[in-house]
Design a protein around this nucleic acid. Structure first.
Lengths: 67, 67
DNA sequence: AAGATTTGACAAGCTAGCTTTTCATTGCGA
DNA sequence: TCGCAATGAAAAGCTAGCTTGTCAAATCTT
């Protein structure tokens, strides 16, 4: 599932490790999600969106959920 | 993670099996999610929200993601 | 250019999400 | 009241999400 994490993270000037800390997962998880290796769980998706002050819909591309 | 699926489903007059069909999972998955046994994946959460014409935030209680 | 930070990637292992199957219970229409 | 639809629940099995650890490559910083 596509997402805007890399872009949003760049805007904030955060490293993957910093974002990982904020949302309570490992850096590898953030890296894998950014690179599309797997989707975050729903709770994690909420925490990531919250870290950027956005909604889940604004961060993750829901089109991928229907294809 | 709490959600309003049971209520929304009642409003639509859908059985668990009908909703399951619509979103492409088994009836047991819908039952388990409704009864809080586990959270849906992010793509499934999108499909469930879409079935009700709502956003993920409107169907699932994101507070649970932070506690 | 050297050193430090950041990122990408992989492996092995554990847990959560989802499946099919099955059975018991509940509630409702004929 | 009989039968059927709907729900709840449990087991066993597979895959996805997430972990720690490690290493190499890329990108800053100075």
């Amino acid at each position: 599932m596509k997402n805007s994490i890399r872009l949003l993270r760049a805007e904030k000037g955060w490293s993957q490790a910093e974002l990982a800390d904020q949302v309570g997962v490992s850096r590898n998880s953030v890296n894998s999600i950014e690179n599309g290796k797997f989707d975050p769980s729903l709770p994690l998706a909420f925490r990531i969106a919250h870290a950027f002050g956005l909604t889940v819909e604004e961060v993750f591309d829901k089109e991928d959920a229907f294809t």
